[in-house]
């Protein structure tokens, strides 16, 4: 298949553009997304192409924006609501948690909410505690939501196109550090179904599970491990809900060792849930306890050194992999 190398943000734009061309009910609203083309340039050019009816700037009114998106979805349109930072999505939690997530069940399955919230999270660059969070666990916890966290341009495009064709509310969580990363994207129609993990690097010694911006970090760790003679398999679930348990479990059954890497702080995180699934299914196959590499349980500080100390780094992943492989001699306590 012919491929092109493009940026993550361009891949997202292609997905929106193609689906807007295909389906006249797809529309997008957000702060500064129309005239200015968005803070991350994802929506550049869409206003000129599709006009102000389908590409709209909004006031700073997250609860309202998310709410009207949910309402429009119930009434048959396909809204994309862009929220600048996932931190600001907290203002719209009633509409996400009590309305969007519940509607299908409360209507006995008659009502559907094909609503997409696109937003971004993650630490990096000194934007401090209210602009740096990784909040996927909040959405993961709520039955009725789909949680999508693409790590590459190809996944971003394929998953966003799929999101615009399925029927449930989607939390489409991008990462601020990924917008300008490049990757190969197939030409032509490119759609990735939810619930299919991707093996980003095959390996046999240890399974490393990571999503979003932790995928590049984990792949870099895998390269370093390779230089040390350790062959790591890197699995990216791509969608946390639905979660592709089979691909994860097949890999861990093979390697017998697993490390789960998440940028979010550890307590109540998605990694803990994946860990519980692995131990429940594969307890007797494991050669070491499953290890979790996660952020500290603390808001992200402004100071750059402390910010870095708050979220997992490549070396943390390398160390955890070596630990589950018992690769380092055990230090005996002094007598």
């Amino acid at each position: 298949m012919a491929m092109r190398e493009i940026m993550y943000r361009d891949a997202l734009r292609e997905a929106i553009d193609e689906e807007m061309a295909r389906n006249p009910t797809v529309f997008i609203i957000g702060e500064g997304i129309a005239e200015r083309g968005g803070s991350y340039k994802v929506t550049e050019g869409l206003l000129a192409k599709y006009g102000p009816k389908r590409v709209r700037d909004t006031p700073i009114a997250e609860a309202g924006m998310i709410g009207v998106g949910v309402g429009a979805a119930i009434a048959g349109a396909r809204p994309i609501v862009e929220i600048l930072y996932v931190d600001f999505a907290m203002l719209g939690m009633d509409m996400i948690v009590n309305q969007a997530a519940k509607f299908r069940l409360m209507t006995g399955g008659n009502g559907r909410v094909p609503f997409i919230m696109r937003t971004q999270g993650g630490a990096g660059g000194g934007v401090a505690a209210q602009h740096s969070q990784s909040l996927e666990a909040l959405f993961y916890h709520i039955p009725g939501l789909r949680v999508v966290m693409p790590s590459t341009p190809s996944d971003a495009k394929g998953l966003l196109k799929y999101a615009l064709r399925q029927e449930d509310p989607v939390m489409f969580l991008e990462h601020k550090h990924l917008y300008m990363t490049k990757g190969l994207v197939p030409d032509g129609e490119h759609i990735i179904e939810f619930g299919k993990a991707d093996i980003k690097r095959p390996g046999k010694d240890v399974t490393l599970i990571a999503w979003s911006n932790m995928v590049p970090t984990t792949l870099a760790a895998a390269e370093e491990l390779a230089a040390q003679g350790i062959d790591a398999e890197v699995i990216d679930p791509r969608t946390l809900v639905p979660l592709d348990k089979k691909t994860i479990l097949d890999s861990v059954a093979k390697t017998k060792r697993a490390v789960i890497v998440q940028e979010a702080n550890r307590r109540g995180g998605v990694a803990s849930d994946i860990c519980s699934i692995i131990q429940e299914e594969l307890f007797y196959d494991l050669d070491a306890p499953v290890s979790i590499v996660a952020g500290l349980d603390i808001p992200i500080p402004f100071n750059l050194t402390l910010e870095k100390a708050s979220v997992p780094q490549k070396q943390d992943v390398v160390a955890a992999a070596r630990r589950v492989l018992h690769a380092d001699p055990i230090e005996l306590a002094a007598e």
Partner: peptide, 16 residues
């Protein structure tokens, strides 16, 4: 300048 002598010890920054 994210220093310990700042109002928030460098934990907050301009916006906090």
């Amino acid at each position: 300048l994210q220093k310990e002598t700042g109002y928030c010890k460098g934990y907050g920054g301009s916006m906090h």
